[in-house]
Amino acid sequence: MMNLEIKGLYKSFEDISLFRNFSINFPEGEITCILGPSGCGKTTLLNIIGNIIRPDSGILNGFDGKVISYIFQDPRLLPWKTVRGNIEFVLNKNLPAEKRKEITGHFIKLVELEGFEDFYPGKLSGGMRQRVAIARAFAYPSDIILMDEPLKGLDIKLKLNLIQTFSQIWQSDRRSVIFVTHDVDESLLLSNEIVVFSRAPVNILTRQKVEMPLTNRSPDSEYLKRLKQILLNNLGT
């Protein structure tokens, strides 16, 4: 399997050094979760990968030519476009109308928003809006999906719901996913591998694979509870 690699990354903001000679790799086609305390630089790494900010120095391998989708913490939907319109927004304008309708329809179905195609975001709940954002990220013909704390501030039920939705889509379309969170439970429910970050300057404290099919996962699982303990121990340092 190919890896997406970052080697020798240096990045500081003002006087704070976030990354000093930092390296990490991500297996392609897998969901990798970056788990760490707030402010440690997780979002910065994501933004470097997404080309939103430049590193001071470092090498990124395997990212060239890759198309990237981004799911932000808040849905960032255009209020004046319908659900369908928002998803179409990221599609190539030159695609014929039926093709666009087909694609948007497909993903709207996958996020279980059938019937809401012509609704404006103002009429949707927070969870539904995030689902549209997910559909949009997948509708965009990307190779990598980046997610920055996408479930922050949502209640448990909604989280589980969205995790369910996401896994369903991902099963049929296994793109590389890198997502960032400080919530241990989230990381356990959604990723194939969890990388724990320390505070700045960032070190990898541990990497834990989660050997359990996404669809089977539940917070009650013993396996996951044990894994959680390991992670918490690491986060304590």
């Binding site: 939103i52 981004y70 932000f72 990221v90």
Partner: peptide, 12 residues
């Protein structure tokens, strides 16, 4: 700004 960012990100 965030909407503009999103749009830029998705290469609009």
């Amino acid at each position: 700004r965030e909407l503009v960012e999103m749009a830029q990100f998705y290469r609009a």
